[in-house]
């Protein structure tokens, strides 16, 4: 064997010329996702808007000094641009800007919390169903199918009706509504990645199921699930506002965008622009979350940006 291997040129093993080697090592995956996000103007813009909304709601006492519950009979339904009430006042004379700022707290909470709950519960069930397969998959997925039989808004209303109104019940209702689609998304991406060769290779290397899920499945599944969760928030904002609008969520006199929209309904002819403001906030926030999820999706797609 010795002479045959000696006299033939074997440049591949000794000093392999690395012709197509790129010049510098590329950053890690999440770092490069971040860099791509920084170059995506639309996503950056909507993220800025969302931070703005977050700032005026969480930091409401910093941007307004008025009391969100203190009305004034004299100052009822002032138009936009009134001195002291730059966005006008509502039907009981409360400053609308202040109400919008404080109202955003509950609106965002009532929208984001159900999605977070469904992310954990649905994500866990979906990954479990996807990775385990077999009868466990059938059990979980068929149970979810039962919930799918109802339109989501009807289901939410029914659950709220059952539990009674109030913020916590609306959150529970929406979480129940969001768990089935979350399970389905998580199950689909997990099943796909479970059958990938590299997961098989990891199984062939004798590592345990938990290790495989942690190192190989989660990393590839988390991205799509998070993107989906972000897009769910945009739906959640509208649904939770809808529940409040119907009187099933937050109770008066608390400020919440859906509820405000309902109570300003009567003033739609007197002050149409003021009455539309809570709706505008709902629309703006929902759209921003939607666009942000699109941005995440394309930033996370490695091959798209190759």
């Amino acid at each position: 064997m010795s002479f045959t291997t000696m006299d033939v040129e074997r440049p591949t093993l000794t000093a392999a010329p690395m012709l197509d080697a790129p010049a510098a090592p590329t950053p890690g995956y999440w770092k490069s996702v971040g860099q791509r996000l920084l170059h995506d103007k639309v996503t950056m813009a909507v993220t800025l808007v969302l931070f703005g909304i977050l700032f005026i709601t969480l930091g409401a006492p910093l941007v307004t000094h008025a009391d969100p519950y203190q009305g004034s009979v004299l100052a009822r339904l002032k138009p936009i641009g009134t001195p002291g009430h730059w966005l006008g006042t509502d039907e009981t004379g409360r400053d609308l800007w202040t109400r919008l700022c404080y109202g955003g707290r509950l609106s965002l909470l009532a929208a984001i919390l159900p999605v977070t709950i469904s992310l954990f519960v649905g994500g866990f069930l979906g990954i479990l169903a996807g990775y385990a397969g077999g009868w466990l998959n059938t059990l979980i997925m068929r149970t979810m199918d039962v919930f799918y039989a109802f339109p989501s808004i009807l289901l939410a209303i029914a659950i709220c009706g059952l539990l009674g109104n109030g913020l916590s019940n609306s959150i529970i209702a929406l979480a129940v509504v969001f768990i089935p689609p979350m399970v389905r998304v998580a199950e689909t991406v997990t099943t796909q990645s479970r059958n990938l060769d590299f997961v098989e290779a990891a199984r062939a290397s004798g590592t345990t199921t938990l290790q495989i899920i942690r190192y190989h499945v989660l990393a590839n599944v988390l991205g799509p699930i998070l993107v989906y969760a972000t897009s769910l928030i945009s739906v959640s904002i509208i649904l939770s506002a809808g529940l409040s609008f119907l009187g099933l969520g937050v109770t008066p006199p608390q400020a919440e965008w859906g509820l405000m929209l309902n109570s300003l309904r009567q003033a739609i002819y007197a002050q149409p622009y003021v009455a539309a403001l809570p709706g505008l906030m709902i629309f703006l926030t929902s759209m921003c979350f939607n666009l942000m999820s699109d941005g995440f999706r394309s930033a996370m797609d490695v091959r798209l940006n190759k």
Partner: peptide, 14 residues
């Protein structure tokens, strides 16, 4: 059989 293959080093150009 038994002979090492003569190869082209490297890979196709970009």
């Amino acid at each position: 059989r038994g002979r090492a293959l003569e190869t082209i080093p490297g890979s196709p150009p970009n």
